[in-house]
Design a binder for these strands. Structure first.
Lengths: 249, 249
DNA sequence: CGCAATTTGTTCGTATGTATT
DNA sequence: GAATACATACGAACAAATTGC
């Protein structure tokens, strides 16, 4: 058998890293984004072997490594249990970038636009963005996820018609930072972030593919450009069992 | 009735602020820490009048102010509903002080010691505090609350026997900042804070007086002294329906 | 209870790539 | 370069434990 270079398969033999290590990493990521569900059980070794296109022994080596980390535990005849799940870590700070927070912790991180429109600013948004109540604003609804697992559902508000092109840019680049750059905002910083936790509403359960009664981490963030002008108000709902927030002072 | 100067009663006539404003502030605080329960209803106006030692009309003025804020809504014959509850805001940043975060948002904020002892550092704490696993550490268990309503339940770990006097100092002053000062640490900064949300365990429900199935905001924080030495590892569980975290960058 | 199906655990054998001597 | 040792990967077969019927 020659080396696998088939498109779509990220595994590479003779890449300097043993196959079972690569597979251990991918299984770890898959566990952390909740790809194996809430049952707490891994798929059988044979299924994993098929999925990754390797021998069962190779999968077993990977699982043994994860077991020694305390991440999973195998029981003969029953299967392999998931013991611990390190949530993906979403960093929050002055330089928080909505679309970049999860890079490197999972494969295929993607953001999509669920819709966009216009509203007039209510009291809360007007105060946060430092604009008169009633000002017309641009709205953008987004969904973020990794490997097809939804992680975050955000509602963004931008003050005034200067930002009317944001949704189109976002749809094209999948990045708010990039979309802001396209309308002339090269840099911005986060002023504040409020964090609450609450139960998910029925439509949030549907959008984020949660189980009923699931918990959300909801953040309300305000960003400002280099001159201190408020440019963005975002309310993001994270699936609390898949994400943790990390604040580095 | 003369001016009230009785100890324990914070209301003061002729203090430059109208009585009904002072009462409105206190009711707002009481609502926000959940003092009126989850029923969503305020006590009758007569009860409130009695509690604050004022005429029912004064309470009505206060409630009218709160109604115009959208915080409550009175319905003739039914009572006064609580519409919105602004959680207490717990600030997190480089200068976060455990015992000072809630000052000014509620009356009678207090921290008590639930217990203390020694442990040996496991892998996670050893890494966080930058000490060898197995090092003996000082532990401190605390409960924080406002007006008798529990708000936070924290477990603190201090590296090594240098901190053995911390629990005694905390019991005396009710402040970790002060206790650290007593052992020679005049200043410290917060290095990082992790935030997750999860369901409360049965004993946490009991300790924080929550309803079953309630949600916790759990923070894991690491503090360091001026020279960067890690001096404190704290895991704090906040009642999520009473607290929000605020991160100012 | 027994029985079959499923799943992990173990032991052979074989082949190949990598690092050391 | 050759010999050696070691880690990696695949294949087949069987043993042992668990689960559902």
């Amino acid at each position: 058998m020659g080396p696998k270079t088939a498109s779509g398969n990220l595994l590479e033999r003779r890449a300097g890293v043993a196959l079972w290590r690569q597979i251990a990493d991918r299984i770890r990521q898959a566990i952390n984004i909740g790809e194996f569900g809430d049952s707490g059980m891994m798929p059988p070794e044979m299924q994993l072997a098929e999925r990754f296109g390797v021998n069962r022994h190779t999968v077993r080596s990977a699982l043994a490594a994860l077991a020694s980390e305390g991440l999973v535990q195998a029981v003969q005849g029953r299967g392999t249990m998931i013991l611990r799940r390190d949530r993906l870590s979403y960093p929050i700070g002055k330089r928080t970038r909505f679309s970049e927070g999860l890079q490197g912790q999972a494969e295929r991180i993607a953001f999509q636009c669920l819709g966009h429109g216009r509203t007039v600013a209510g009291a809360e948004i007007a105060e946060a963005l430092d604009i008169p109540p009633g000002t017309e604003c641009i709205t953008l609804e987004t969904l973020g996820g990794a490997d097809g697992i939804p992680l975050s559902r955000a509602s963004h508000v931008f003050p005034g018609p200067d930002f009317a092109a944001i949704p189109a840019h976002f749809e094209r680049f999948g990045s708010i930072t990039r979309a802001l750059a396209e309308v002339g905002i090269a840099d911005y910083t986060r002023l504040s972030t409020d964090v609450i936790a609450r139960h998910a509403l029925p439509d949030e359960v549907a959008e984020l593919k949660l189980s009923p009664g699931a918990i959300l981490l909801e953040t309300v963030a305000v960003n400002a450009d280099g001159e201190g002008r408020r440019i963005q108000y975002s309310r993001t709902r994270f699936a609390a069992d898949r994400i943790k927030l990390r604040i580095e002072s």
